Simulated assay, not measured.
Amino acid sequence: MKPGIHPAYGPVVFRDSASGTAFLTRSTMASDKTIACEDGNTYPLVDVEISSASHPFSTGTARVLDTGGRVERFERRYGAR
């Protein structure tokens, strides 16, 4: 890699604002906020709106659409054939 043109790649903590869960990983994102982890080190903190800890698909709380109501409404409007 060419020196001086790539962003710094290092440990960053991503915190889910919906569930409060924090993930320590590596990224090129930078932040002015910091957080002290249980390992005694301080890392940059990036707050995210949604993650795998709060996304409905990952948590199993996804809603199922009522397709039966749509079909009945269509048949009422245009008649069943």
Rank of each mutant, 00 (worst) to 15 (best):
V12C: 03
S27A: 06
Y43G: 00
T28D: 06
A36P: 01
I35N: 01
T59A: 10
S54H: 08
F23R: 07
S58I: 04
S31N: 04
T42L: 01
V46W: 02
M29Y: 05
S52A: 15
Y43F: 05
F23C: 00
E49C: 04
P44L: 01
E38W: 05
F57A: 15
S58K: 14
M29T: 02
S54Q: 11
N41I: 01
V13R: 03
Y9E: 11
N41T: 06
I35A: 00
D47T: 12
R15I: 05
V13F: 03
D39V: 03
A53C: 13
S52N: 13
A30N: 13
E49W: 10
K33L: 11
E49N: 14
K33Y: 07
T28K: 12
A30K: 15
H55D: 11
I50H: 12
G40F: 00
Y9I: 10
E38G: 11
T21M: 08
L45H: 05
S52Y: 10
D47P: 07
L24N: 04
S31C: 09
P44V: 04
K33Q: 14
M29P: 00
P11W: 12
D39W: 01
E49T: 13
A18Q: 14
V12H: 03
P44Q: 07
S51W: 06
T25P: 02
T42D: 06
R15S: 09
G20I: 06
T59R: 15
C37Q: 06
V48I: 15
T42P: 01
S19M: 05
P11Q: 13
F57L: 15
A30M: 13
S58M: 14
T28I: 08
G10D: 15
A18I: 10
S31Y: 09
V46E: 01
F14E: 02
T21H: 13
D39Q: 02
V46M: 07
T25K: 13
S54P: 08
G10T: 12
S17L: 13
R26Y: 12
K33H: 08
R26C: 08
E49I: 08
F57G: 08
T34V: 08
